[in-house]
């Protein structure tokens, strides 16, 4: 049955800048398969090397994030819209101490100070 996938702006370069892609599918998984069959270059950004949906890729059916409920097995009905929505994460990494640990660090011994 016809359903519509809503494509985030970051991935529209793989769908000819189309914000929506209509596919024939009975489940969310089938819809994603139809999407990646039509636009294979999008696949590496949705799935990791182990063929699992990347952790930051979420799937919304209406207002509900179904990623951790029905996931790709979620059945679809005629006219459903599934939005692909990234959650965004990042940060400077693990280098350097936490600010709190800096606050409780003892002052350096005089020999290691600036002297003077």
């Amino acid at each position: 049955m016809p359903v519509t996938l809503l494509i985030p702006s970051a991935l529209r370069s793989f769908t000819d800048r189309q914000a929506t892609v209509r596919v024939e599918a009975n489940t969310v998984g089938e819809a994603l398969a139809a999407l990646t069959d039509t636009y294979p270059d999008i696949r590496r950004h949705l799935y990791d090397d182990g063929n699992a949906l990347r952790p930051f890729v979420n799937l919304y059916l209406g207002e509900t994030n179904i990623k951790n409920t029905g996931g790709t097995a979620t059945p679809l009905k005629d006219g459903d819209e599934v939005a692909l929505v990234p959650s965004i994460a990042g940060g400077r990494g693990i280098c350097g101490p936490a600010p709190d640990s800096r606050r409780v660090m003892p002052a350096p011994p005089a020999a290691e100070g600036t002297g003077g």
């Binding site: 809503l6 985030p8 702006s9 979420n58 919304y60 994030n65 939005a83 929505v85 990234p86 959650s87 965004i88 994460a89 990042g90 940060g91 400077r92 990494g93 693990i94 350097g96 936490a98 600010p99």
Partner: peptide, 15 residues
């Protein structure tokens, strides 16, 4: 202090 995350719900609203 070294990580951030923006939830998908917020991204969907922004979209």
């Amino acid at each position: 202090y070294h990580r951030f995350r923006i939830e998908a719900d917020d991204i969907l609203r922004a979209e």
